[in-house]
Structures are given as structure tokens and as C-alpha cells.
């Protein structure tokens, strides 16, 4: 039940973010990942997978990109992001905070999207010229979503103590 709630939070954030005009069209914060991060820290890797899967599937249906080339990139990026975040979280449960895990996830997402774009869509090595920009933006967007998730987790903790 709570996972369904988190999945819908992720879905709403994802669709809402699509409505905000972006100055740089290829730069996306990835607000939907806040819900995945919360699920990972509250309910573990399985819960995070469910929340991500539901968001990618229903999100693509809502904005009309289901099974388009962009859908392959977005689902591949989301899957890679979930996998890396779950692995790092399991391997070093105390090492990285939710912000660190978020940066891992955003970077994995970006690198895998670039790789998929190279393999499937644009078979040109030149596309790797975008790697530095993607690494930098992964740190920045990962930090923003991670900070949002951190703030949410703190609020939830306080709610439990009262």
C-alpha cells in the first residue's frame, strides 16, 4: 500500500517536471527519483524497483512516449540507476547518505543513456564528447534529488518520534 503511494508520488513528480520549461533541453533533474530513493531507504531494493518500474511504465503512457526510442533510453537509464543505487546501498549501508546514493544513481542513469544512445540510435563515437557534461550534470541533479529525499526522510523520522 505504501509502495503504491510512493509510486504515485514518483509518477506525479515525473509528469509535473515535464511541464516545467527547461532552459537546457537535455538537462533534467529527475524528480521522480525522489520516490525511488525513499522506497530504497524505507522498504529496500525490491520496493525501489517496484516504484521505479511503475513510474517508467505509467509515466511513458501518460506523456505518450511508450515504446518510442526515448522510452528505451528512459527505461534503460532508470533500470541502471536502480541497480547501481541498490547495489551501493547494500554494499555500504552506512557509507553513503541518501545524497551520495542519489548521485550514484544519477551518474549511472546518464552514462547508461549515453551508451544506449550510442549503441541503438546514433552509431557515432562523437556522442562521447557529451560525457563530461553528463558526468557534471549527474552530480548536480543527483545532489538536488538526494537533498529532497534527505529532507523527506528527516521529516518522516520526526513524525515517527512524536
Amino acid at each position: 500500500m505504501r509502495l503504491a503511494l510512493l509510486a504515485s508520488v514518483g509518477l506525479i513528480l515525473f509528469v509535473f517536471e515535464g511541464l516545467i520549461p527547461r532552459p537546457l533541453p537535455w538537462l533534467k533533474i529527475g524528480l521522480g527519483n525522489v520516490a525511488t530513493l525513499l522506497a530504497l531507504f524505507l522498504y529496500g531494493a525490491g520496493g525501489a524497483f517496484a516504484v521505479t518500474g511503475i513510474r517508467v511504465f505509467l509515466g511513458s503512457l501518460l506523456i505518450g512516449t511508450f515504446l518510442s526510442p526515448g522510452f528505451l533510453l528512459s527505461s534503460g537509464g532508470a533500470l541502471a540507476s536502480w541497480m547501481v543505487m541498490a547495489l551501493v546501498h547494500r554494499a555500504w549501508p552506512r557509507g553513503f547518505s541518501v545524497v551520495g546514493i542519489s548521485i550514484w544513481g544519477a551518474s549511472a542513469h546518464n552514462v547508461v543513456q549515453l551508451t544506449l544512445a550510442h549503441l541503438v540510435l546514433v552509431r557515432s563515437r562523437g556522442i562521447w564528447a557529451l560525457l563530461p557534461v553528463f558526468l557534471l550534470s549527474g552530480v548536480a541533479t543527483g545532489f538536488v534529488t538526494g537533498a529532497a529525499a534527505y529532507w523527506m526522510l528527516e521529516k518522516l523520522k520526526k513524525g515517527h518520534e512524536q
Binding site: F96, G100, V139
Partner: peptide, 12 residues
């Protein structure tokens, strides 16, 4: 941020 977080950000 934990120490590992800061190292991660620095490395990236």
C-alpha cells in the same frame, strides 16, 4: 553529507 559522499562528489 558523509565522508564517502564528499569523496564521491570530488571524484566525479
Amino acid at each position: 553529507l558523509t565522508l564517502s559522499d564528499k569523496i564521491l562528489i570530488g571524484v566525479f
